[in-house]
């Protein structure tokens, strides 16, 4: 890699472990007391997941990186760690500025209106009230939710929530933007508009990480792709090369499964 590129994200031997609370333990109060006395948590079944197992990478200004891999390969955990929304259990992530994550969770506060969520989202990202008012008309227009904007966000569909959230974040220039499947929840027309937006963000010297169901979209938008498999990087390189290898692997596994049947 050439030395004149400006690194914006450095991931250094990153490990992410998190605890999943798998619901309440069944049984009686007496049983719960007994398990407490024997040193176990009586209330919860906890499972530890080692989602990312030693990932290292450097992303540069102008990079648009597609992340591919099966469910549970650690794509979302990696993005959350870069955004500072998950604490690494080992290793670290270094960024040039605070990364913004767009995830499937669209609503910030379901009890209040979409309009109020624009305010909350903008202020949380560190904007001033004046800046929020400046972006508000554009956000409402881009999200195409004008007639619903004063309704509580709890009444929105998942797609509408994601649209509003994307529009809030896209209203501003980001040096580092992380997109996690958000686009797949909007309708086709919105997907097209958001793809255009992502391209323009990437062109304006930002760094974009993209997790999408659609590999076509990754091929169209990304200049680099990373294939994650069970928490480690299997391949990191040109989009076409990585996706070809990934798709070949899927076909291979599928063929093996069909043979087994």
């Amino acid at each position: 890699m050439s030395t004149d590129k400006i690194p914006t994200v450095v991931v250094d031997d990153l490990h992410v472990r998190y605890k999943l609370i798998r619901g309440a333990r069944a049984g009686s109060a007496a049983g719960a007391l007994l398990s407490l006395l024997s040193g176990k948590s009586p209330g919860q079944l906890i499972q530890s997941v080692h989602a990312v197992k030693g990932v290292s990478l450097t992303a540069y200004a102008g990079d648009t990186i597609g992340l591919v891999g099966r469910n549970g390969s650690g794509k979302s955990s990696l993005l959350k760690a870069i955004a500072g929304l998950l604490q690494p259990s080992q290793g670290d992530v270094y960024t040039a500025s605070q990364a913004t994550l767009l995830g499937v969770n669209g609503a910030l506060n379901k009890a209040v209106s979409g309009n109020r969520n624009i305010t909350i989202g903008g202020l949380a990202m560190g904007m001033s009230r004046a800046e929020v008012e400046e972006i508000r008309p554009g956000v409402i227009e881009f999200s195409d939710l004008a007639e619903f904007i004063d309704l509580p966000m709890g009444t929105y569909s998942t797609g509408m929530q994601a649209r509003l959230r994307f529009s809030i974040a896209a209203a501003r220039q980001h040096e580092i933007l992380l997109v996690d499947e958000t686009l797949s929840t909007g309708d086709t027309e919105f997907q097209e508009r958001s793809q255009t937006k992502i391209r323009s963000l990437a062109n304006s010297a930002g760094t974009v990480f993209l997790v999408a169901h659609s590999q076509t979209m990754i091929r169209e938008v990304c200049n680099r792709a990373i294939w994650l498999d069970q928490g480690v990087i299997k391949l990191d390189g040109e989009t076409a090369e990585v996706l070809d290898a990934y798709e070949a692997d899927i076909q291979e596994k599928k063929a093996a499964r069909d043979e087994g049947n």
């Binding site: 030395t3 400006i6 994200v9 450095v10 500072g84 670290d92 270094y94 960024t95």
Partner: peptide
């Protein structure tokens, strides 16, 4: 990686840890 150590890159470009308080 470019061969430069992680610490050198972090220092040169003023990158900030996402996990330290």
């Amino acid at each position: 990686m470019t061969g430069k150590s992680v610490n050198a890159i972090i220092d040169e470009f003023g990158l900030v840890s996402a996990s330290k308080i």
